[in-house]
Computed example of a mutant assay.
Amino acid sequence: MASTTLPRVASMLAAAVLLVVVACQKQAPTPDTAELAALSALPLAAPAPADNPGTPAKIALGRALFWDPVLSGGKDVSCATCHHPANGYADAIELSIGSNGQGLGTNRHFRSPNNIPFVKRNSPTVLNAAFNGLAADGSIDPASAPMFWDLRAQSLEAQSLLPIASLEEMRGPACSEAAALDSAVARLRRLPAYGTMFSSAFGGTAPITATNVGKAIACFERTLVATDSPFDRYRRGDNTALTAQQVQGLQAFVTSGCAKCHSGPMFSDYKTHVLGVADNAKNPVSDAGVNGAYAFRTPSLRNVALTAPYMHSGTIRDLAGVLNFYDPGRGQAPSANAHVSVGQRDPLFPGRVTDPAAIIAFLQSLSASSYDRSVPASVPSGLPVGGNIQ
């Protein structure tokens, strides 16, 4: 009796040990504590550089300029054309259509005849762009904040002026790139309403300058912040703000390696990386990014669910497609760009994307509900608000 019982007990113990081992193997990896802690809530307000503090007069002027197509060479495009609140302050299309365009968002198209190309890259949202450069320790220098996919501008003040001189964005064929800002300033100076607004905002005898245009738009854009996302509320102590699946997704986001580049409160390291993202066929030539190396800046994931399509080329339609791109085990090949070899790509993370459905649920928790969606009834030029967007 004893001789038959002992082997049976031993067999049962071995099976139990095996079950424990298997159970342990199936447990989710433990997130890196430091990376998890770095994904913190946003401040409630965005800081301004010392030489451009926000004032009600400057914000009101910047709001008017943001929505007024008078800044564009053809008086048909405003900042809001490609950064509209209806589209999360982006434009909902792969590559933006600026000059010679008509309509808003997915309804936007070129007017005919067309001699203007698409904007070269996907339009990033300006919502929370005032927090660009915000580090995990809370430090930020708004005067050197990184902007654009290729980091070609630092600060909102510098960024806001470049589209005015861009052929495909706002300038059109009306003047040369070198003359674009002077031309825009001349148009503003012919409008008495802007003379009053600039004097109120900046004082002096001749306040309508390109520098002050950039400063005013930047002051307005610093009010376009969204800081009450479920994730922010969760990080501020409301443990009910995220669902169980979203908490699981947060952990999977870290263990899958996403937080190695999408780090800190803005979910960006603000660095450029070579990913091998597919070119957009609407561009006549391949977009080689920074220094011809096919490197592009890590975008913020704040409000990411509002700003599809994704990547600098706008070639990935949804968040599931983004995760498929990063996971070499499914979806696209390791390099979707013929100009980028597998060896040239940055080593993003070591393993597969774990629990993509939970990660997507978590990414949706980064979208805030309270931010300025208002559209002015008119602009000082009397032109259509937002440009040709109807």
Rank of each mutant, 00 (worst) to 15 (best):
A57H: 01
P173M: 11
K58Y: 01
S3M: 12
A158V: 04
A336H: 07
Y270E: 12
H339C: 09
G314Q: 10
F325I: 11
R297G: 04
P7H: 06
G88R: 06
F202G: 12
E169M: 09
A37Y: 02
T106E: 14
W67M: 01
F267Q: 09
A226K: 09
I116R: 12
Y294M: 07
A165S: 15
R373I: 09
D228N: 11
V213N: 06
A252Y: 01
Q154C: 00
M170C: 07
A288D: 14
A210T: 09
A37T: 13
A90P: 10
F220H: 14
A193H: 04
T240A: 13
F148S: 08
L42Y: 06
A143V: 07
Y326C: 14
Q154N: 10
G172D: 08
I389N: 04
S144T: 14
S123C: 06
G257K: 13
L42A: 03
G331H: 10
P376M: 03
D355T: 12
P117M: 01
I389E: 02
L191R: 04
R108Q: 02
A308H: 07
G133M: 02
L39G: 01
F198D: 08
P192H: 00
R373G: 09
A158G: 00
S199D: 11
L250E: 05
T315F: 01
L161N: 04
G98W: 03
E169I: 07
P384S: 03
T354W: 02
K260H: 13
A210I: 05
S176W: 08
S370Q: 12
A16W: 11
V340L: 05
S313M: 11
A2S: 00
Q344M: 14
I59M: 04
Y194K: 04
A143M: 10
A178M: 00
R235T: 08
T125D: 01
R108Y: 04
R302F: 01
P265A: 06
A46N: 06
A201F: 05
P192N: 00
M147K: 10
F202R: 12
S139Q: 11
D137P: 05
P142Y: 04
P43T: 06
G343C: 13
D318S: 12
A90M: 10
H312E: 08
L306A: 15
P29G: 08
L156F: 03
P49E: 09
C175T: 15
T33H: 15
Q102V: 01
R63W: 00
V274Y: 03
A129M: 15
Y326T: 13
D346W: 09
L104C: 07
V119I: 15
K75G: 10
A41C: 03
V353C: 10
V385P: 07
A2M: 02
A48S: 15
L6M: 08
K58F: 02
N303M: 08
I359P: 01
S199V: 03
G62E: 03
E221Y: 05
F362A: 13
G105Y: 04
Y310E: 01
G289H: 13
A46C: 06
Q25Y: 08
L323M: 04
P142E: 05
A241N: 07
R235E: 08
G386K: 05
H109C: 05
G73Y: 08
C219S: 14
S166I: 14
A90G: 14
P376D: 02
